Simulated assay, not measured.
Amino acid sequence: MNPRSLGERRQRAPRGSGEQLHDEILDAATDLLLETGSVKEVSIRSVAERVGVTPPSIYLHFTDKDALLDAVCARYYERLHTKMKQAAEGQSTTLDVLRAQGLAYVRFAIDTPELYRIATMGEGRPGSDVDATLASSAFVHLRETVQALMTEGIYPPGDATAVTLQLWSTAHGVAALLVAKPYLPFGEPLEFADNVMRAFCTGQIVIGLIGTEATVQDTLDWVIENKGVRQ
């Protein structure tokens, strides 16, 4: 979206179009974040100028800059929710669904690095709309899949929330590195992400087979002992 010239006034919105202005404000703030890559460069005044309204018009929708940025990030997570839902469609197994969801998360991050950095690596505010949206969207998708894997007996029974947080930590770690350090020798980004996600997904299966109390040495001994089973 191109900035409006300072002399250009936004046409008076028709009655009942407050929701449209709300969306335009979010679009403008998002564009400014993408263009500048910095929260500091986004202000109520700069957003108002881009939309073509006065700053008081922004305050009718958002109490302050923090509330506006929270709304931008919350909408980001809503779009991530959609991407992860689409990724799950057409997968043949529940394990494939989990892998696809993790990859969708990473892909969305590297496609919109500035927004991902702000939404997930910026200073958080407990109880914000951002956390509420994440808890009711992307995280729920992952947790439902993890719970399904436990129900199917593929993953060991346990706390699905805890395992989901481990999975999310894995996906976020990969995404954060790809966003913050893209010059590292990752190779093809999504292939790298897929290898890491595959290691986590299959690792949970192994834990179920050998027990959650097994040590690293126990795991190695089990692998050596069962190495020839499939041969």
Rank of each mutant, 00 (worst) to 15 (best):
R4N: 14
S17A: 11
S17F: 05
E19M: 07
L21R: 06
L26R: 01
L32M: 13
V47F: 03
A48R: 07
P55H: 09
I58M: 01
Y59F: 14
L60I: 10
D64M: 06
L68F: 08
D70N: 04
A71S: 15
V72W: 07
C73K: 14
R75E: 11
R75A: 09
Y76Q: 07
Y77S: 10
R99H: 14
R99T: 09
Q101P: 02
G102N: 07
V106N: 03
F108I: 02
I110Q: 02
A119I: 07
G124K: 14
V130A: 06
V140C: 10
V140H: 11
T145R: 08
V146G: 06
L149W: 09
M150E: 12
V163W: 03
L165M: 13
S169N: 12
S169Y: 02
V174L: 06
A175P: 04
A176L: 02
L177V: 08
V179C: 10
P182N: 01
F186S: 00
E191D: 12
F192W: 12
D194L: 04
R198E: 11
C201K: 00
L209T: 06
I210E: 01
V216I: 13
D218G: 07
K227L: 15
G228E: 11
V229G: 02
V229H: 14
R230F: 14
